[in-house]
Nucleic acid binder design. Structure first.
Lengths: 218, 218
DNA sequence: CCAACTAATGACCTCAAAGTCATTTCTCTT
DNA sequence: AAGAGAAATGACTTTGAGGTCATTAGTTGG
């Protein structure tokens, strides 16, 4: 029984990832302010002091968490959209449906909620989110829209504003669920919303057909 | 020279309002966690201890702030919308424009941002916001939509989801400005967004055969 | 005009969680 | 295998803001 099991191991390379992974859970569960670094440490299987070998401060750890989640959840969406060849009218339903069912693993909306909450305290956080998430999506979408306009498939107008018209309802719907849960009588069914809004917005974006002037009920 | 100026005055009735007013500013500027009650007190012209005569805890004060802002900024919007007699096609542009220019006084979006951020720590806050803001607006809108559908002015579909289609882009646009400021190249111009999205969504909501809806009911 | 009442004060307490560091113990090099 | 080097520990310090309370002093009723 001289089999001495070590009290701990050196895991210089593995630790940062494990700590970030633990931190994601704790932050998502409690929010930034209420998250205790001792909890993060415990969940990562280390001790609070150890965290400080890898992250100088709580803020630093949070930044790392945001960048990690952003990085792991964005490539898939972006590549899928960028690889798509076809009209916006075909892409929009696909895009919104994908956003509806899943949104990664539920950690993205939770993180988004936190970033919104803490962005006043840490403005660089908002910047990370903007540059890595929002800006990319808007660039992609407005590019596609401008394209569609050039081909006469889409009415004239500001492409960025149209991009908001497309994604806004989904963003709002997800925020609704994140904030109020699914219990509210107004909670939108996300797949339904995605399908219906896709149909609605595609119609709304269609150019005026010659000889078919836009007339809605007065 | 017996003119004794008092060190302080009793203002039992005025204090709560002044404290809330000061608290709005401080909370909006720093967020809940970073807001110091001593700052609130100073700005209200009192001393920290005084706050506790009127509010038991920091959370209580925050709740009061939310309710105050909600109460003062909601009646106007709701009454205006409710008094409106006309088709949705006319109401939507007006509604979105009103939301765009001002959104009250800029404190509502800031507050909304805070509520989003702190709602995990204080779930009842989310509930206040839901019941007094979100629910009311959605009820109003989806009612109008159902109405329009009954009159054959609007395509069939889930009225709540349509309500999200209408307000989602504006909500998202305001959040964008609140989070990323107006510097981003993607920052939407809110009046433009309002006008363009109103046009887009009204078109998208129009029924297939204008003037001849399939299931028209007198 | 005085006394009971209480709004307001400000010095104080508390306490939890961020952050530190001397020490231990594993691991890598030679 | 030994000792240099650094990963990990855990007990410790710090801090700063929320919250308390005995006391002071405007206010008001009789």
């Amino acid at each position: 029984m001289t089999d001495t099991k070590p009290k701990w191991n050196r895991r210089k390379d593995a630790r940062p990832g494990e700590i970030i992974e633990a931190a994601v859970d704790v932050f998502v569960e409690h929010g930034f302010a209420a998250a205790k670094l001792s909890d993060v440490a415990t969940r990562a299987g280390v001790v609070k002091g150890t965290l400080y070998r890898y992250f100088d401060t709580k803020e630093d750890l949070f930044r790392a968490v945001v960048q990690h989640v952003v990085a792991t959840n964005l490539q898939a969406i972006e590549q899928a959209a960028q690889a798509f060849r076809g009209s916006l009218a075909e892409l929009v339903p696909v895009l919104l449906m994908r956003a509806a069912d899943g949104m990664g693993d539920g950690r993205v909306p939770a993180l988004a909620r936190m970033v919104i909450g803490e962005s006043r305290a840490f403005p660089d956080l908002a910047r990370i989110w903007h540059d890595n998430v929002v800006s990319r999506i808007l660039t992609l979408l407005s590019g596609l829209i401008a394209n569609g306009q050039a081909r006469g498939e889409i009415r004239s107008g500001d492409p960025t504003a149209y991009a908001f018209s497309i994604v806004g309802p989904m963003v709002t719907g997800m925020l609704f669920h994140e904030l109020f849960g699914s219990a509210s009588p107004h909670a939108p069914n996300l797949p339904t919303l995605a399908a219906q809004h896709a149909e609605t917005i595609v119609r709304g974006l269609a150019p005026d057909a010659p000889g078919n002037p836009p007339d809605f009920q007065p």
